[in-house]
């Protein structure tokens, strides 16, 4: 029974959402919007679940003494945001937004910028013309990089046009094939889920 009810719920909601796609009736439109709202609300609760798990996992680690100072800093950072939001609100000039703009945003973009160095070292170490495929990959990357720089070299315009052609035709068509594959894959997986053939989302037996 524990597994039957979720399967029935899954089938019903799947069928409703599938059928409403073909209807412009007000009830169908309203139901569609309502279920999309349910999605966001349930998602918000799953976030609460995640945060509580994060706190629990960190507390266990702290009590065992693993990386204690770092975990405490993380927890303090996490707790400080809701507290600031509760006291001063989340308007543009609030301490909450100050934390976001001067602590979170600069650090997040710097972590992303760190990858520039790893990309550079990967270019040197791994980007070798070992086979025909590797050479094509290398060639495409070099053409794109050259064309996307403002360099005073001859035939820059032709190079730029050629790079655009590569992006718009051969590269795009490979990506399109991947997209079609994803589309067909999602379609069959969705049907399997609705019909109850695919049940991995139910988790283990309990």
């Amino acid at each position: 029974m524990n597994r039957q009810i979720p399967l029935i719920v899954c089938f019903s909601f799947g069928l409703i959402m599938f059928l409403q796609y073909f209807s412009n009736h007000t009830i169908a439109r309203t139901m569609n919007l309502a279920i999309l709202d349910y999605w966001q609300i349930i998602f918000a609760f799953t976030l609460v679940l995640g945060v509580v798990s994060y706190i629990k996992a960190n507390m266990t680690k702290i009590s065992r003494g693993i990386d204690r100072p770092y975990l405490i800093v993380g927890l303090l950072g996490m707790i400080s945001m809701p507290i600031m939001a509760l006291i001063w609100g989340i308007k543009a000039d609030s301490p909450f937004m100050w934390m976001f703009e001067n602590v979170q945003a600069p650090m997040a973009s710097t972590v992303f910028a760190l990858l520039a160095f790893f990309v550079a070292s990967a270019s040197f170490r791994g980007f070798r013309a070992r086979s025909m495929q590797a050479s094509i990959l290398l060639g495409a990357a070099l053409i794109i990089l050259l064309s996307r720089s403002n360099l005073p070299i001859p035939y820059t315009e032709h190079l730029s046009e050629f790079a655009d052609w590569i992006r718009n035709y051969p590269s795009m068509t490979a990506r399109r094939a991947i997209l079609i594959g994803i589309g067909l894959g999602s379609l069959t997986t969705s049907m399997r889920v609705i019909l109850g053939i695919e049940r991995t989302w139910l988790g283990g037996e309990k």
Partner: peptide
Amino acid sequence: AVMIGSGAGI
């Protein structure tokens, strides 16, 4: 089940 089912339906 609601999320998975409606997601699959859409």
